[in-house]
């Protein structure tokens, strides 16, 4: 077992030297997680706005279900997507299993309920504030949803961050549907798990440092956007 100081030294050397394998893993991690979050936002924001701005029978049940789905166990989602994409599954002929697309799909399933449930809460509060005004202006349902999404844009950025946090740190689902194949589906979390089990703590530690750094950088970018836009528009 290496001592802590040498692990740290090797990890920093890998990062500073932009080790090719490391860069590849980080790149794929970002591609998968950002792709999944983008799709989840496209699906989840309008869904959250629709539920947040509508009153219908059974709405409470829908909200409870949506909130419950925020805690979907990743391995269960991984297994479900695996069954869907395996040769015997309905989407088997597409040959997506053990590809980054399968990993994006699994993460989308995990992240969409988070985005939808959190945006529902944000947009419902906005809807309460704007409802009379929007009805007075004669907005259609579609215009109302579009306006709510735009008015809530900065809060929704934070919602998307929550989704990104879940996606980038996720390991259970992506390892099942991706298989952690070197140069194909290996991402930071699955690589950390593998390297730790192999005893290569330097690479695992370097990846861990990068994982945290990526999360911090993405958060800083989004918060910067929020601050700049918010100041400019008095939000």
């Amino acid at each position: 077992m290496e001592d802590t100081q040498s692990i740290l030294q090797v990890a920093l050397d890998l990062i500073v030297g932009a080790d090719a394998e490391l860069v590849e893993i980080v790149g794929l991690s970002l591609r998968v997680s950002l792709g999944a979050v983008a799709i989840a936002c496209v699906l989840g924001f309008p869904l959250g706005a629709a539920i947040g701005s509508a009153r219908f029978p059974g709405r409470g049940v829908v909200i409870v279900l949506l909130n419950t789905m925020m805690g979907l166990p990743p391995v269960v989602v991984g297994l479900a997507v695996y069954l869907l994409l395996s040769n015997a599954g309905p989407l088997g002929p597409l040959g997506l299993l053990y590809t980054p697309t399968a990993m994006i799909l699994a993460q989308t399933v995990l992240v969409t309920p988070i985005i939808a449930a959190l945006s529902r809460q944000v947009l419902e509060n906005l809807h309460d504030e704007y409802d009379d005004q929007f009805r007075s202006l004669g907005l259609t349902r579609r215009q109302t949803i579009a306006a709510l999404l735009w008015e809530g844009r900065y809060s929704l950025l934070t919602v998307s961050l929550a989704g990104f946090g879940r996606a980038i740190a996720e390991v259970g689902a992506v390892i099942i549907v991706g298989g952690n194949i070197k140069h194909v589906t290996r991402v930071m979390t699955t690589a950390i798990a593998l390297e730790t089990s192999k005893g290569d703590l330097s690479l695992a530690f370097a990846l861990g440092l990068l994982l945290v750094s990526v999360a911090v950088i993405v958060n800083l970018c989004v918060m910067g956007l929020r601050r700049i836009g918010g100041v400019a528009e008095g939000v």
Binding site: E129, Y130, D132, Q133, S136, L137, G138, L139, Q143, A147, E151, E233, G234, V235
Partner: peptide, 29 residues
């Protein structure tokens, strides 16, 4: 209802510029 307009005690303004608030209403109609 579209032939009526209502102004509330506490004006509800959008998180946009002054001109954009006007443009929003006009565009919606």
């Amino acid at each position: 209802l579209r032939k009526q307009g209502m102004v509330f005690q506490h004006p509800v303004l959008l998180r946009r510029t002054v001109a954009a608030n006007l443009r929003f209403a006009l565009h919606a109609r």
